[in-house]
């Protein structure tokens, strides 16, 4: 089962002839993902390392039956690439590109209202269903098939949580990096709902950071509807106020979006909150044992 992606996923890469696009298409293929081709305008009809290249997403979908795409198109053109994929009927759109203007993402967000496609990202590491299918840039070998669902804004903290749950023998169903931008596709809440309904997922790790209120929304839902054990971590407790911490979304304005208020919301929902990123795995184990 797992969520979002499995062995029925047929992936294309938008921007496949770029350096990063090709490299990660190869890595995904090595992991076992069925990468059926890619898109680069004006390079249709060629192949690159065995991947068929198409001019448009629509052509690629019609020729390959692709149902998922990962986007490596440069930021100024990435919003249009997302919309092209949405309009071509690609069900799952994973936007890896970082640095997309917020106004472009507002345009995408509004254009996709009423469409059934799922957007993940932008500025995200992607999605991995352990030992089955990987979309994006996460290092494959740290994953291990198991029972924990992981959702995080940060890429490297996703890896950290994956690695720790692997070492503790818990393993993962699916790990989802939703991205660090202010306007993005799937939220923590959306992914938590999917994990809650997935019978293979026995525990959930929720990793957030300062800024916004995504984590609070997920915590409110967990408090009311989620019986599975949940562990959480919020990055940025020591971040200076008003300073943008790398992620466009990671900034504390006024008193909202602080690590303290988010941790309190998580704890209030019965989530086992890790004090440092090093104890995410242990907290998950603790939460699992507490429910037995």
């Amino acid at each position: 089962m797992a969520i979002l992606i499995d062995n029925n996923t047929r992936l294309i890469t938008q921007g496949i002839t770029g350096k990063a696009g090709l490299f990660h298409s190869q890595k995904c293929r090595d992991y076992g993902t069925n990468v059926v081709g890619g898109v680069t305008p004006k390079k249709g009809g060629t192949t690159v390392d065995g991947f068929a290249v198409f001019n448009t997403v629509r052509e690629a979908r019609e020729a390959t039956g692709a149902n998922a795409t990962m986007i490596f198109v440069p930021a100024p053109f990435a919003a249009d690439a997302i919309l092209e994929a949405a309009e071509a009927g690609i069900e799952l759109i994973v936007a890896i590109t970082e640095g997309i203007p917020v106004m472009d993402m507002l345009r995408v967000h509004n254009a996709m209202k009423g469409m059934s496609n799922i957007l993940i990202g932008p500025n995200c590491p992607g999605v991995t269903t352990a030992d089955v299918c990987k979309i994006g840039i996460a290092p494959g070998p740290i994953h291990k098939k198991g029972k924990i669902g992981i959702v995080s804004r940060s890429g490297t903290l996703t890896y950290e949580a994956v690695h720790q749950t692997t070492l503790l023998g818990l393993g993962q169903t699916t790990a989802v990096g939703i991205g660090g931008d202010p306007v993005h596709g799937l939220s923590h809440l959306d992914v938590v709902k999917l994990f809650n309904e997935d019978p293979e997922t026995e525990g959930i790790v929720l990793i957030g950071e300062i800024g916004g209120s995504d984590e609070e929304a997920a915590a409110a839902y967990i408090k009311e509807f989620v019986k599975k054990p949940v562990a959480g971590f919020i990055a940025g407790a020591s971040a200076p106020k008003g300073k943008r911490m790398g992620h466009a979304g990671a900034i504390v304005d006024g008193n909202s979006g602080t690590a303290q208020s988010k941790k309190a919301a998580l704890a209030d929902a019965g989530i086992f909150v890790a004090e440092t990123a090093a104890e995410i795995g242990r907290k998950m184990l603790e939460a699992m044992n507490a429910r037995r």
């Binding site: 940060s154 950071e209 020591s238 971040a239 990671a250 990123a277």
Partner: peptide
């Protein structure tokens, strides 16, 4: 470090051990 999230988490854990970046 690499990645904004890990950067923040690294700062936090340094603070946890009583020092500052």
């Amino acid at each position: 470090v690499n990645g904004a999230g890990l950067a923040m988490a690294t700062m936090d854990i340094i603070a946890h051990y009583g020092e500052q970046p």
